[in-house]
């Protein structure tokens, strides 16, 4: 039986469906971010980010997105937000900071937008 077409061809603006294709593309990047669960690994990364990128086999676009701390570019390179949150944690970025960056707002503006959703 075929899967529901809607489930296979969703186009939701501003949303990347993290499926098998993205999971394969982003594997190295997400694996690096997963390693940041360990304090020892976070320290090793901070001592030499470039060496850490190589250790985890990041592709060039993944390295550049990390250097720029550009969350949308990390997602485009296959990053999954649950793992990217651990990368953001190293730089003490909250989910509001990350949301603000992706939507082109200040963190205060983003928080205001969240609050307005309750109106």
């Amino acid at each position: 039986m075929a899967a529901e077409p809607f489930d296979q061809h969703a186009d939701i603006p501003g949303t990347t469906i993290f499926d098998g294709k993205q999971a394969m593309k982003g594997y190295a990047l997400n694996k690096m971010c997963y390693s940041f669960n360990s304090a020892e690994n976070r320290a090793e990364y901070l001592r030499d980010p470039e060496a850490y990128f190589v250790k985890y086999g990041l592709a060039d676009d993944q390295k550049q997105a990390c250097r720029d701390k550009n969350v949308l570019a990390m997602i485009a390179a296959g990053g999954n937000i649950y793992y990217l949150a651990k990368f953001a944690g190293i730089y003490k970025l909250s989910v509001q900071d990350v949301g603000a960056q992706q939507t082109g707002m200040t963190t205060e503006q983003f928080k205001e937008k969240l609050k307005r959703a309750g109106d």
Binding site: P13, G14, T103, F110, A117
Partner: peptide, 13 residues
């Protein structure tokens, strides 16, 4: 809630 993408911050009461 949505944390990722240009639609980050989406909430649907």
């Amino acid at each position: 809630h949505q944390l990722d993408g240009q639609r980050a911050g989406f909430i649907n009461k």
